[in-house]
Amino acid sequence: MREIELTGESFGADPNRSLTLPKANKLPAKEIKGFRDRIMSWYGIIAFLLLWQMAPYLGLADGRFIPPLSTVLADAFKLVANGQIFIHAATSCQRVLLGLLAAIVVAIPSAVVLAGWFPRFTKFMSPLLALLGNINPFALFPLFILLFGVGELAKFAIIFWSSLFPILNTTIGGVQNIDPILLKTARSMGASKGVIFQKVVLPGALPSIFTGLRMGATTAFLFLIAAEMLSASAGMGWLIHNSSMNNYIPRIYVGVVGIALLGMLMSLLLNKLENFFLDFKEEVKLD
């Protein structure tokens, strides 16, 4: 009984004191934890890079085929110094972004409209869409070249085609897989179709849309390299192809890592976008 009285008393007596005290204690600890977290996410990459550097010296790998990181970095620095890498990176980024944006603009609205408004037509079309998505763009390369020549248009078409179907099919799946309880609840509360679309269907499908976007971006990068290896005079894929033809091995790795970094930048942007839009989802903790 006395304890209850005591807490009640201190709570009522000085609210400012109880508020400021833990705050002053917590701040530095939180800062340290945040710093540790940031460091932690780099451990894996640092270990990998160290292993890469050491492997040829330790005899784990053949230095001719896997040159140490320092050799690769030296070559990368040369390319940065004479500005060549920026030309290649910019060319590749432009190609990917154009193709991907076109695919997004076509795929997301049509998928949402198809799955949301015409479920029967979608059911009718989905086998065909799955089939078309399964067709290997690689096999269509000769066709694209014949149709669009070897210029920019063919590369755009390849990237557009290869990233269109992942986005389209995932978005359709996302709209179809919305929790039926949510839809039933909204409907039973008398929400109109427009409100259901805006408040349930779109937020419910957003995770899938982002999955589709990520898949589309990955495929776009994948086929960008293939397209640039086919016929180009600039771009990261051309860089790799050219160095591999000339047996200039460090530069192959520069290209590989450069593309990986570009792809990471893309997925970082997508993550930022996703976090911005998907702030309603709770994080799962198992431990």
Binding site: F48, I240, M264
Partner: peptide
């Protein structure tokens, strides 16, 4: 393992971006 994820996820994201066509030569 939350810590495990924090250590390995960035590396895996990095490796996941390694293009198979680019790795073809490697």
């Amino acid at each position: 393992f939350k810590n495990f994820e924090r250590v390995f996820n960035p590396l895996l994201v990095f490796l996941g971006q390694f293009n198979p066509f680019a790795l073809f030569s490697v």
